[in-house]
Each structure stands twice: as C-alpha cells, then as structure tokens.
Design a protein around this nucleic acid. Structure first.
Length: 362
DNA sequence: AAATCGGGGAC
DNA sequence: GTCCCAGATTT
C-alpha cells in the first residue's frame, strides 16, 4: 500500500522531471568524478551539517593524502585530525577511520552494499547509509537530509516539525514509494541539489523549479510557510582563561585534549574555566597551576577571544607565562616553536591565539 | 526526546 | 543577532 500523501500524485512524471533537471543542472563537484564507494563515503561524512563550498578544499586535500581506504586505515590519528582541522565535528573523522579499518578487516577492503552491513559502520547513520547505497551502488534507498525534508515538505505539503527525530521516518516511508528504481542516485541527489539551488530555506525560486507543477505548496501559494521547524535554544556562555607558557628557548607549551567530548584529540593551550575575568595575577597563577600541574607565575594578559559553537560560547582571556628552566614535558604535552606547531591540529578558537601570539613580539 | 558535537556563510 | 547546512551519537 502506497503512502496516502501520494494519492493523486504523478510519481513517474515527478521522477522524470526531477532526474532530467538534475542531469542538466547538477554542479561539477570533485566527489562526482566517479562512483568509487570510498570517495562517495568520504564526501558524505564531510558534508554532514557542512556546506558544499566549505567541503571542497578539504575533500581535495583529504583524497590527496588518503587516496584509498587502506591509506586512511593505516594513518596516524594526528594526521587525520590535521586533515580535518577547521572542519568541525571532529568525531566524524575518528569514526570514519574506525569504520574504514573495519571494512579493511571484515570486508576485504570492499565497502559493503547492504543496508544492514553499511549501517553498522561507525558514523554511518540513516542518511549516509542511503546516500552511499544509492549513489555508489544504485540501490533504491532513501537519503533524507535537511534539503530533502524541506523540498518534500513543500511538494507534498507535509507540516510535521522537521526538527523532531521521528519526522525523518515519515519522509523515508514516502521516499520508498517515490524513489526511481531505475536511477535512485540521480533521484536522491536531485532532491538535494534542488534544495540547495532552487528550493532554498528562504525565498525559494519556484519560477525556475522543474517540479513546480507537482508542488502542492506552490499551487496553494504557501511555499514560504513550509517546512515547519521548531527553534532551538541559544548557547550558554563560558568564561575561560588560556595560557601561552614559554620556555627558555621561546617554545610554547601545548597539550592534547581528552579523546572524548568536545574537540576530542585536538591540541590546545592549557586553559581552565573561570568564575570571572578580573585580571588578578595570583588568581590566574592558581588557575594555570591547576591546568598544567606546575606552579608558575603569570606575566601579561595579551588577548581576548570570543568563539561561538552551536551550543556554547567561549569567552577566553589569554595570558602569557614564562618558565625559567624547562623541567618537564609530560605525556600529552609538548614544547613547540612557531613552525612545529603547524603540524598539530588546533580548534579554531586556539588558532586565533597562535595567530596573535606569533605575529607580535611578546 | 533532548543534548552533544564545530564552524562558517547568508540574511 | 538568527538560521541552517548532503547528521550521528550519546544521554
């Protein structure tokens, strides 16, 4: 039994109009050069919650560094994180490597082509599984992302809240009936490309839309009221103190973040959360001692950094400190100069500190 | 079901 | 400032 939303809907004509438009108007993108499952996979992970224009240079560099599944499987963690530096959601690349290693070991380096097997891989959720299966293996599986929910909410006048997790299942159920069995790749990519180029979040270009005739929202003139999406609450502010600790050679102390949680595995300057930003040298010295496990006195406050995440805002005061004698370098800590520091992956917030510190004569 | 997990670009 | 982006995982 077909989904009720598709009664009186011309499915085959919709498929044809969408696929023809996609074939004529799709952008030339590096991951569309061929259908190599590994290349498709990497692109889909990078594209999660990330714009095409942002991904392109990262994708080109990543495929140059890790051209094959095996290259990625055997790479060191600091190298893959460096390749991901600035892209955000860093667990994506750690999960990708975990999954690639499983494919090498369990599937003889061939990306599995069944929903059950591919969905079991780390970091491969419902969207990514459908995207790889349809694009690389021509399997008629739905790949429901934000674009698809926006486009179909308008075409079929669906007013479920797309911010709710279960709403994705509604669209998946519809797409099983709607998807082209002859060309599921162009169908899925066509929906996404349409969302990116025409059926945009604000002021959709309906007059240029290839499926305008099929669109219930357009025919009612209510395309601007869809999709329905509840708002998320705003980020919480955290006051931080970060420290550039310099040794007698002018090298600075960096440390590796824990392998779980926010910015896992990236490198940073020692830092702590503070109650307030009053510049009190004794207070800050105590905070620094807590951060690196050594008593050291503060020299100056040199910079203020504000960094906005989705759910947190870091308000960082940056201090310098000098140690007279270099006497330690514990596990997960390094003293590096301004050239060595380039080999380590830093969160953007601390890249701002590097840039400022090494461009001035402190 | 809600929170966590980055960063940037468009408005 | 707000929204949202080819989402997945954890709580």
């Amino acid at each position: 039994m077909q989904h009720e939303k598709l009664n009186e809907f011309n499915i085959s004509q919709f498929q044809q109009d969408l696929i023809n438009w996609f074939k004529e108007n799709q952008r030339t993108l590096p991951w569309r050069e061929n259908k190599d499952p590994y290349r498709v996979w990497v692109s889909e992970i990078m594209l999660q919650q990330t714009r095409v224009d942002t991904v392109i240079p990262y994708y080109l560099n990543f495929m140059r560094e890790f051209p094959t599944l095996e290259d990625l499987a055997y790479a060191e963690e600091d190298r893959i994180l460096k390749a991901w530096e600035g892209l955000g959601y860093y667990s994506r690349v750690r999960n990708l490597q975990t999954a690639v290693r499983e494919v090498v070991e369990e599937y003889n380096a061939a990306v599995p082509d069944t929903l059950k097997e591919i969905s079991a891989l780390k970091g491969v959720g419902p969207y990514t599984a459908g995207a790889i299966l349809s694009i690389a293996y021509a399997k008629p599986e739905p790949a429901v992302d934000g674009n698809v929910m926006r486009v179909l909410s308008r075409v079929l006048e669906i007013d479920e809240d797309i911010a709710k997790a279960k709403t994705r299942k509604t669209f998946e159920a519809i797409i099983y009936d709607l998807i082209s069995k002859e060309d599921p790749s162009s169908f899925n990519q066509g929906l996404m490309e349409l969302g990116a180029l025409i059926c945009t979040p604000t002021s959709p270009g309906c007059l240029l839309c290839p499926v305008r005739e099929h669109c219930m929202a357009y025919n009612k003139g209510i395309q601007d009221t869809l999709p329905v999406k509840s708002k998320k609450k705003k980020a919480k502010r955290k006051l931080m103190a970060a420290f550039v600790v310099k040794d007698e050679d002018g090298k600075v102390l960096i440390e590796k973040r824990p392998d779980k949680g926010l910015l896992a595995g990236l490198w940073q300057f020692p830092n702590v959360e503070v109650e307030s930003h009053s510049f009190n040298k004794e207070e800050m010295a105590e905070a620094l001692s807590l951060a690196i496990g050594k008593p050291i006195s503060i020299r100056d406050r040199i910079q203020k950094v504000e960094h906005v995440f989705s759910h947190i805002v870091w308000d960082i005061d940056v201090y310098t400190a000098v140690i007279p004698i270099k006497e330690w370098e514990k596990e997960g800590q390094r003293f590096v100069d301004q050239y060595q520091i380039e080999d380590f992956a830093f969160p953007v917030s601390h890249q701002k500190i590097i840039k400022h510190y090494f461009s001035e004569a402190f």
